[in-house]
């Protein structure tokens, strides 16, 4: 066997590029649903095999219907063309998995922070995280059935967000709605507007 010191036969016209986008927010806010709504593949659920597995009880108060949790990672994919993909990674929703965020966030184009107006405080940690690391993010206010509708401006003020950070209402079960959130993020991350 020979070491391929000089690559041949794998030349591509343009270098392949996988663009990483994070979907963050509190536990039960709809991250997994959002990834599943827009992904062309069934979202892959995987785990890092942790030697020290945290023990705790997930706080599901106010989140009536969610019975499972994203314990490690799930991700979806959107193929733009051969060699150009968007990857959507749902961030672990529980505090004990914070250590995985740094790896996920490295090199990411940006993030969607999903907010539930019934538990707006749950997305504070994600907002803080991305602000501190200067990772572009948009806030998607998931309009749950039965949840009060809020004006984006009120959510912006409640979260203490600057005027430049997009806040959009969305329905994570609706493909067009998720698409619009991602379009907003990509434009904001690339163009700063």
């Amino acid at each position: 066997m020979g070491y391929a010191a000089f690559e041949t036969g794998t030349a591509t016209v343009a270098p392949a590029l996988a663009i990483k986008i994070l979907i963050a927010g509190g536990f039960g806010v709809g991250k997994t649903t959002m990834v599943g709504t827009i992904s062309e593949i069934r979202p892959l659920h995987t785990e890092e095999l942790l030697s020290d597995r945290g023990i705790g009880v997930d706080d599901t108060s106010g989140v009536e219907s969610k019975v499972t949790t994203t314990v490690a990672l799930d991700f979806g994919r959107i193929t733009i063309r051969e060699g150009l993909w968007l990857y959507l990674f749902g961030t672990p929703g529980q505090d004990r998995f914070w250590f995985m965020w740094d790896e996920l966030a490295l090199g990411a184009l940006g993030a969607v922070v999903l907010a539930d107006t019934r538990r707006l405080q749950d997305c504070f940690p994600a907002v803080d995280y991305f602000e501190q690391r200067e990772i572009p993010f948009v806030v998607g206010v998931n309009c749950f059935d039965g949840a009060r509708r809020y004006e984006p401006g009120k959510v912006r003020r409640a979260l203490g967000l600057g005027e430049h950070i997009p806040v959009v209402l969305c329905d994570v079960r609706d493909r067009r709605s998720v698409r619009d959130v991602l379009t907003t993020l990509v434009t904001y991350a690339v163009k700063g507007a």
Binding site: I78, R81, G107, R179
Partner: peptide, 24 residues
């Protein structure tokens, strides 16, 4: 090794991504 996003996403790739998302 991935290139930094700011360098990797030029105007052409940005347009491709937007067009791709809109066609979903």
């Amino acid at each position: 090794r991935p290139r930094p996003m700011a360098q990797a996403i030029d105007e052409r790739i940005y347009r491709e991504v937007l067009d791709g998302l809109r066609s979903l």
